[in-house]
Design a protein around this nucleic acid. Structure first.
Lengths: 233, 233
DNA sequence: GAGTGGTCTAGACCACTGT
DNA sequence: CAGTGGTCTAGACCACTCC
């Protein structure tokens, strides 16, 4: 019983989404296997597979070998968001980007940073603090630690001119990373640097990156008031 | 010149990542086309395609027909984050989940909500305010508008018992959605409801969903202090 | 126009896992 | 053990877009 002869995986994906949404396929229910669906739509199994994988990637289907494919009971929607370089982000808003180094030292990091970066107690790291500006106004305050053992050449870079952010993106590719989003009140230091009120609510991104297990950098980015990250689901 | 006879797309992906990371393929550079790579690794072009697509999905490669595949100059890393139901999120932390309805009215929403939901000036919507608790402590304050034209059956649901969040996830699947993350200061109302200090920095998620262009709901979730979203890159 | 990625096919074998 | 999804292949045609 070919219903419509869909031979294109994106149309198939839409059809599957419709069936889930219209409850023709109900939460928790087993849906037909790939071979049957391929038969129904008059296309190859690989095409059905591609479409089903795409839907499963959004969290609406759960697939297991032998057990088959089921409609997720508690759909966990997944959102993909892009994390651009700060300069790109500012320029994408048609604002002029500028950058100012605040401080630069080589010293032993505090215990929490040391732990995140997997440094031993005596190890020193490069501490960089900088301000990124959009149209001359504070946009992001960057507080960063860089592992000199992993990225020794950073020592030769003039961080007054080029931000560590940019240099690292271009010169220290990473294999693993984690990222966290949170909210924090401006403390006295941040309030002064960013020219905001004390205790103002600011958006914070913390990121750690590794290259094959070796820590590269740990950074905390504090954004100006009003900042938001937006994406579609 | 077969280098190693890799016939599995995930190994191929690793190999490509290595080449990018080791700068054997430099930023901005054109890499060999799919046919040549298939030849080099002794596999089918479809396999190379799958691996290259996977890398391109992470933002490290940029692919264009006829123009070929290039290593991204300014890699825009993409992070995927899961957005579970609040109950699942609390239970995943091994905390007990509970829920309390704060208010429930049918009325005309403010202009900003009306615009987001595409309602006309006279339309009323269901306004639900509720508190989600983890181990009895405020976890999320939910301020939600629901489009009665799209989801009329919500009227028959007892929202004292079941949260709108859960009911909608189970009964009003959506086809499009957007989501935004930001930071906000607790105002007097939120401070009292969540038992936090006035102006405390809180993490906020705003989400709007549509079903085939018809707005379903618009919600603002304000999280307890310390909340963070975490993911790997 | 021609080169590249995007996709589809038909068939095959494999890997996992429920029974 | 057997059923299901996961993947690979070889070949084909198409869609896009740079030149």
């Amino acid at each position: 019983m070919t219903s419509l002869e869909i031979t294109n995986w994106q149309d198939l994906q839409s059809e599957f989404l419709n069936r889930i949404q219209s409850r023709q396929w109900k939460p928790g229910e087993l849906i037909p296997n790939e071979a049957d669906l391929a038969d129904e739509f008059g296309c190859a199994r690989a095409t059905v597979n591609r479409a089903l994988r795409a839907v499963a990637d959004t969290g609406l289907l759960v697939r297991r070998r032998k057990a088959g494919t089921r409609v997720a009971v508690h759909p966990v929607r997944k959102a993909t968001l892009s994390i651009p370089m700060i300069r790109s982000e500012v320029e994408a808003r048609n604002q002029s980007y500028s950058y100012a180094l605040i401080s630069l030292d080589t010293k032993k990091p505090a215990a929490n940073v040391r732990a995140k970066m997997g440094l031993d107690k005596t190890a020193k790291a490069l501490h960089v603090r900088a301000l990124h500006l959009a149209d001359g106004k504070p946009y992001v305050y960057e507080d960063r630690w860089i592992n000199l053992a992993t990225v020794p050449t950073i020592g030769a870079v003039n961080l007054e001119i080029q931000s560590a952010n940019e240099w690292l993106v271009a010169n220290a590719p990473f294999t693993e990373g984690d990222i966290a989003f949170s909210a924090a009140s401006a403390d006295a230091i941040v309030a002064e640097i960013m020219n905001v009120d004390l205790n103002e609510a600011l958006f914070v991104i913390e990121r750690n990156t590794w290259n094959n297990g070796a820590s590269i950098t740990s950074v905390r980015l504090t954004f100006a008031p009003g900042y938001r990250i937006h994406t579609t689901i």
